[in-house]
Write a protein that binds this DNA or RNA. Sequence first.
DNA 1: ACCTGAACACCGTTCAAGT
DNA 2: ACCTGAACACCGTTCAAGT
Lengths: 232, 232
Amino acid sequence: MARPRKPLLSRDRIVGAASALVDAEGLDAVSTRRLAAVLGVSGPSLYNHFRNKEEILDAVADAVSAQVDLSMFEESDPRDWRAALHDWALSYRAALAAHPHIVPVLARGPGRRPAGLRVADAVFGAMVGAGWPPAQATRIGALMRYFITGSALGSFAGGFVDDETAYDPADYPHLGQAHLLADHRRQVDEGAFETGLRALLDGLTIQYEQYARPVGGDGDDTATVRLAPNRP
Amino acid sequence: MARPRKPLLSRDRIVGAASALVDAEGLDAVSTRRLAAVLGVSGPSLYNHFRNKEEILDAVADAVSAQVDLSMFEESDPRDWRAALHDWALSYRAALAAHPHIVPVLARGPGRRPAGLRVADAVFGAMVGAGWPPAQATRIGALMRYFITGSALGSFAGGFVDDETAYDPADYPHLGQAHLLADHRRQVDEGAFETGLRALLDGLTIQYEQYARPVGGDGDDTATVRLAPNRP
DNA sequence: ACCTGAACACCGTTCAAGT
DNA sequence: ACCTGAACACCGTTCAAGT
């Protein structure tokens, strides 16, 4: 059999199988040959639908970005930038946490991935709409990304080994309980994320009062922006 | 020739060559065979010094962690946790920015890497010494890691493509200038890092007043800790 | 257009053999 | 102890051939 009358493959089928493989066994488990085998075709068939393996993984990453809820940026009062950012961060993190193995691919930046770009666009637009100067809105999009992808990638607690003898008190005087972290992995990571997110939003609130005036307060929908020096 | 009277290889030589290869050509360029060729030996020789390729890359990552300055945690007044955290974050980011390709390996967590553990130990010890409750000190270590590694990994600006046609205004109404980001890559990333770091420290300062009282104010060097609920 | 098998230039790792 | 070549079981990708 050379070409079937109905195509065996589609971009969506390939992305679906690749996602499942990434979730189940990690990035390293994805080879074009294994992926093709799962799909019941031979390895080179994939190249009729994607230029190379990287493009397949990019599509998997973009499918995760597509899961991020952006509705809070449309619905809410533009003055509620803080609440919107908070809810978006939770949704973003939840999407990444559900597919941790693809995060390194996603963290490289939006590039040309449509869903990733929609996320960047929505955040930037909402912050500008809330009265942030564009340069600051760009920075907010970037720094939130740093924090969220960093938290999804690192799994601080999971990075420690569950082995009491691994952390000699003579070498690391304060890490006596570190081996316990592996157990409490989820709690520690979620606690750190919550604490960090709250700190970030509190800190940005302080900066907001220096950089901008909110928009739309009295039916005036143009941003009244006051530029302030970068360091107060 | 089978075994030379003086060893051709050492762990340090291997790590040095691997670091250079990672910096020059990225993670994917490091294969055991290429690395061995650079070192003038055959591929399997490396296995006399490291168990596998992953261990070599872990050692490269740890060499980067070893560059992080930790002196601010020893020298400073324990009450200056904020200044110490700030300076440490800059030093950490600088170390990662100098070797961006190894960041994905480093971001997986300290594991058993000695230098990475020294970093975690120093931060945790300093925060507890400054009066933070241990659970909060753990979270601070984690969230700072999230932010710093996320910023070193993502290069938000570098993630955009320098191509005016890539970001159609119909699809992404707010990304009209996005293709310019590639040019200003360093500025945007550094600006976002500074803004985020300041926000994080401002936010933590607010939380500090709820969680703890500073230590050593009147020659009393035990922490007086008041536990507060996680959400105020 | 879409799939195939064969082929090319690679991989990481094991292992017996050498000194 | 430390290096070697041979070998095994893989890779990603190209390409001519088939329908």
